[in-house]
């Protein structure tokens, strides 16, 4: 059985979603989602609020449960088997709109907690890795502070570093800049761009269209729980096909 989980996925495919459906009670949030993400791909998902884009990426690491269809992440079938869920979660990093750092732990402890307890890495080694990634997001000097003492932009960068410490193969971003002041958005986006340039597989729900143009291989537009349009960024922005996409783009780029 353990081997069966690994079949029918080539090494090139990071995430495969087939005919996935999800309901909140009787409300149908996600309808027949089909999506294949190749390794190294950077995908930006956009769409009006309530279109199901956050729910979609939260299904990928089982923060939300899907009711129908198939999700295969990194060769592991996502089912209600708790072992599989934990395996997937430790391979997939996630950054949230509100950071979700642990306020009772220092920045360094935030970054070393999961490696120590989930990966069983010795504390010393975990701390070295953490400092490496904190340097990468350019805040090693904050390591001993607590999340409450940092600015929003710094907190989000810590959250990215915290995910990276688990050495994930895929990163999910759920509106990482939506809760930030304008002057802090850039520092977070720069970190994400750097990550993209290193070849990380990324799925990013965001309204930062400049970011989408610069780093995405593919932009997906969702509305009413379905994928309405997807294309390369250039084509997507300059020549949107669907009426809904045109309307959405005119609203967010219009002023």
């Amino acid at each position: 059985m353990a081997n069966a989980k690994k079949m029918d996925v080539s090494d090139e495919v990071a995430i495969q979603i087939e005919k996935m459906n999800k309901w909140y009670g009787s409300f149908h949030v996600l309808k027949d989602i089909d999506l294949t993400v190749n390794r190294g791909e950077r995908i930006v998902i956009c769409g009006p609020s309530g279109s199901g884009k956050s729910t979609l990426i939260r299904c990928i690491n089982a923060l939300e449960e899907h009711q129908q269809g198939k999700i295969i992440v990194d060769g592991t079938h996502l089912s209600s088997d708790l072992k599989n869920i934990d395996t997937i979660r430790s391979e997939v990093g996630m950054c949230f709109q509100h950071f979700n750092l642990f306020p009772h732990l220092s920045i360094l402890e935030n970054c070393t907690l999961a490696p120590i307890w989930v990966r069983k890495i010795p504390k010393k080694e975990a701390e070295e890795t953490a400092m490496h990634f904190l340097e990468k997001v350019k805040i090693p000097e904050q390591a001993d502070k607590y999340p409450g003492q940092l600015s929003g932009g710094q907190q989000q960068r810590v959250a990215i570093a915290r995910s990276l410490c688990m050495q994930p193969r895929i990163m999910l971003f759920d509106e990482p800049t939506s809760a930030l002041d304008p002057e802090m958005i850039k520092e977070v986006l720069d970190t994400m761009i750097e990550l993209a340039e290193e070849g990380m597989t990324m799925l990013c729900v965001t309204h930062e269209m400049g970011f989408a143009r610069q780093v995405a291989n593919r932009v997906i537009f969702m509305d009413a729980g379905q994928i309405v349009e997807q294309n390369e960024p250039e084509e997507f922005f300059n020549n949107p096909q669907s009426e809904r996409t045109q309307l959405f783009l005119s609203q967010i780029l219009g002023h």
């Binding site: 690491n61 934990d86 979660r89 907690l113």
Partner: peptide
Amino acid sequence: PKGQYEGADSLGLDFWQSTRLIIMPQALK
């Protein structure tokens, strides 16, 4: 906040780990 549970889950901590390391210290405080 629900985000604390999700933050712990997203890192792959299991129920007892997240309860002991993330949830309880804050709830008790």
